[in-house]
Design a protein around this nucleic acid. Structure first.
Lengths: 353, 353
DNA sequence: GTGAAAGCGCTAACAC
DNA sequence: GTGTTAGCGCTTTCAC
């Protein structure tokens, strides 16, 4: 492996000069700069990151902690973050963690060994030790798509409860009163979105029937399917279902299909997130869109500022969302209509921020 | 940041001893070992990776080059690889690259700066310089889900052409003769799968009609939709469509839905890959399943062996695949049946390896 | 068994 | 403008 010394020797100058050239510092005579650059090109020299970060005491690396089974929403989020971070000059190291203490502990060890410049959490963890480390302030942290008030960390998210309320209110506005809920047991948004559902019903004066509510262990499509099947098996009539995430909603759609029920004629389905595939389902999924790209960019921006000056310019962290109406929702007992009569995809968008 | 010297000072021994304890070397008196371990635990000392890899001249890092817009198939693949690699003691660094020279060049620079122990390509690249670097042999490489005969690199993949032939033959066996093809322009599998389609038709004595074939720029769902719409607009009758990937198939399903056509009564759709969501679509997608997990594990295994002894134990690299029949396919002009009459998901699986 | 010392590739004072 | 030097945190001979 060719090192800075080799270049120095070949170019007939000192290593410091090479360093100055490579790092675009001034105080190098143009002609020497040219000569060095030529040697660099010729030898294919690329500086060794490990050595650099060792002396600089910076790794130019931010870690992203993300669930092992990250869903499509998180996948879009982390792509955006990765890109933005790269623009700021940081590379990204992913930590896929399972929903279990042992995995988190290992992840924490690894994080510490990496001497990261920053950590972005796209995942809530269980282990208190993990949060204790984050709260210690030894490294900049931003929480993405969730918050922990007690930790006073920077956080990017939407108002989960309001989003769920908007989804539920939309269904109520369509005339539905027998509305089911499928949500997950883990992560705070599961409970927050369930609360939004409850408060929307309450405000509308609709009795909350626990038979119409099911909490599943994960946010997988399979669990969405299982949740819907459970709801169906309870024989409490339902004309619409609010699923706490799009993936859950996709599973619900599948369960309805397997049960021979039509969407939206027999049952309307609404999700949250607006993952890419939502628009390509048949029927297209009505959902609440989170501004994924904006949120990802903002997370990277905050991180970059935190690293540069341990402070951020502006506190914007709660993002707006919007209802995207597609074909999976309609008025209760709507007469069957052919697909060709359906409104355009995302034809009706209702905003709020 | 607590370093090995701090530990040495506190424990009253030399840094070398600490190193020996931490790296589980022998020649340390048990009582000293205990004492050191206690200090390590107490201080929360974690060795600095950068410093280690600097002296060891190994980074314990393998890079995974993957498309910027990786699809769900690739997503499952890289999760598996990441996990297996972790078990072998390697960490993973992702390089998301766009389908353009500039992005590849940047990626190559970054790869070189990282001094990786190995590289797994889940993505074909365009730039010849990139392949030149890989072929140079300065670092172990494994190609995953594609091959480049001229480079003599280790590679993991299925026989793409045979897989496509199996999909097409299945449709032919159902009685279809007017079979469309949607494939992509990039990546070798696009052409290989198209060849499989062609040779299946040829073998069955069915005339190949170029009007039933469309190549789209990417493998996105949107392009699958656009491709299907194009096929439909050509007015050449079609009773079935073979899409070169599941994501393309999902887009095709969507286009059919938008056009008011029923699947499979009016048009059957078959994909390749068996991504997770395929089973949860309505109708469920008939497809060819690639053994994603096995392939991912094997890629990690080969990589680990290559790093350890620059040689592998056994040449297994071409994997089998199987047809998974779901509800998106049926005989041409099948009479409409209710969803409740449909066969169980994946009820019929036809193997081949 | 354990410690002293050298050195991995690089940057940043500090000389000149 | 450029070179010399020290040192980042670690591992590994080589003494003892």
């Amino acid at each position: 492996m060719v090192s800075i010394k080799d270049i120095a020797r070949i170019a007939g100058v000192s290593p410091s000069t090479i360093s100055r050239v490579v790092n675009q510092k001034k105080y190098v005579k143009p002609e020497i700069r040219e000569r060095v650059l030529a040697v660099v090109k010729e030898t294919g020299y690329v500086p060794n990151n490990a050595a650099r970060s060792m002396v600089l005491k910076r790794t130019f690396t931010v870690g992203i902690v993300i669930p092992d089974t990250f869903n499509m929403f998180q996948r879009q989020l982390f792509s955006t973050i990765e890109h933005s971070l790269e623009e700021y000059g940081y590379r990204t190291l992913f930590f896929f963690v399972k929903w279990e203490e042992e995995s988190e502990t290992r992840c924490l060890r690894r994080i510490q060994a990496e001497k990261l410049d920053g950590i972005i959490m796209i995942h809530e963890v269980i282990h208190p030790e993990f949060y204790a480390y984050l709260a210690k302030g030894s490294v900049p942290v931003v929480l993405c798509t969730f918050d922990r008030d007690e930790l006073a960390l920077h956080s990017i998210h939407i108002d989960e409860e309001s989003a769920a309320r908007m989804a539920t209110n939309y269904l109520i506005g369509l005339g539905h009163t027998r509305i089911g809920l499928i949500s997950g047991m883990h992560f705070s948004f599961g409970a927050q979105r369930a609360n939004g559902y409850r408060s929307a019903l309450k405000e509308a004066g609709i009795r909350i029937d626990e038979n119409r509510i099911v909490f599943v262990p994960s946010y997988s499509t399979e669990d969405g399917r299982a949740g819907m099947l459970t709801l169906l098996s309870r024989l409490t009539p339902i004309s619409a279902v609010f699923a706490a995430t799009d993936e859950l909603a996709i599973g619900a759609l599948r369960a309805l299909y397997e049960s021979g029920l039509r969407v939206p004629q027999d049952v309307s389905v609404v999700g949250i997130d607006d993952i890419d595939i939502a628009a390509y389902l048949a029927p297209g999924l009505t959902t609440i869109r989170q501004p994924i790209r904006d949120m990802g960019k903002r997370a990277a921006e905050i991180m970059a500022q935190l690293i540069a000056k341990s402070d951020i310019d502006d506190e914007l962290s709660t993002f707006g969302f919007e209802l995207v109406v597609r074909e999976s929702s309609g008025t209760p007992n709507a007469k069957q209509i052919g697909a060709q009569d359906l409104p355009d995809r995302a034809s009706r968008i209702e905003k709020r921020s």
